[in-house]
Design a binder for these strands. Structure first.
Length: 264
DNA sequence: GCTAAATGTTGAT
DNA sequence: TCAACCTTTAGCT
């Protein structure tokens, strides 16, 4: 769920359902009681997404900052909401809709200044209007760290997660172990637009589909098991060359790649 | 119906 | 390096 494309969808959905309306904000679980009291009754003015961070802008220059982490989920529906149960961190109700937030890593009320500070320490977000991709290139081209680690670093590129990391490198036929400084400028000039294209497609469809139609075993609607080249396909034959997909742990996360197509 | 693993990050050790 | 967060889903029975 929560790579950058999902967060962008969440921002849009909040704006569509709640934009311009006062919201009832509660924390049935209690862990966000103070923040909920601060926001309760305020009008949602705008929403924003930066990398994997979601911002809901309320009247009075208060921003609800949410990072879902690994487990966090939003659930939307028509009001009235069902009875609250379990660890329901935040419930917002207004304009005939509700939104429930569970399991998030970060939920806090921020000022515009705090929001700006966070954005300053994130790398360019491929989904924003004019991402400064050269800032990412500067970091990558000067680093000895493997490209598979750099792409996951939110200070290098904001919004890429484990699925896009694996898939983007496969599509570039680039080894995840290649040091950043050994990535050439032409390679980067092809890699970045591919990241943008794939993530924008993810925003549109709500899922991560990276395979070309010709590389899928069947035509028609894309099945989940056909949607990716290497992510979680360890041991299965590479869709292009048949070599078993390899797995390892890099940057603390499971990595998947084809040792033949992505030899170096 | 159960179990294991997961798209992520922070903070303690 | 590891635990915590504590939901959802895939895969198996």
């Amino acid at each position: 769920m929560p790579e950058g494309h999902s967060v962008r969808r969440h921002a849009r959905e909040h704006l569509e359902r709640f934009g311009g309306w006062p919201l009832t904000v509660t924390s049935p679980q209690g862990r966000f009681a103070d923040g909920a009291a601060l926001l309760d009754g305020r009008v949602l003015k705008t929403t924003d997404a930066y990398g994997k961070h979601l911002f809901l802008g309320f009247a009075g220059d208060l921003w609800l900052h949410v990072h879902l982490g690994l487990y966090g989920t939003w659930r939307f529906g028509h009001a009235p909401p069902p009875p609250a149960r379990g660890a329901l961190r935040v419930r917002m109700v207004g304009n005939g809709s509700y939104a429930d937030l569970r399991g998030a890593t970060a939920v806090e009320v921020w000022t515009a200044t705090e929001k700006t500070l966070l954005e300053a320490r994130l790398g360019p977000d491929p989904l924003r209007r004019r991402p400064a991709s050269d800032r990412a290139w500067d970091r990558i081209s000067r680093s000895r760290a493997p490209i598979g680690q750099l792409l996951m670093d939110q200070a290098v590129v904001a919004g890429i997660g484990n699925v896009y990391r694996a898939e983007v490198l496969f599509r570039a036929r680039m080894s995840p172990y290649r040091p950043g400084r050994e990535v050439t400028r032409p390679e980067w000039d092809a890699l970045w637009p591919d990241i943008v294209t794939l993530m924008k497609a993810g925003v549109r469809s709500g899922r991560i589909v990276t395979t070309h139609p010709a590389d899928r075993p069947r035509a028609g609607r894309v099945r989940s098991e056909d949607a990716q080249y290497v992510y979680r396909r360890q041991g299965l034959p590479c869709r292009l060359c048949g070599t078993p997909v390899a797995t390892d742990v890099l940057a603390g996360r499971n990595l998947f790649w084809c040792p033949s197509c992505q030899a170096d």
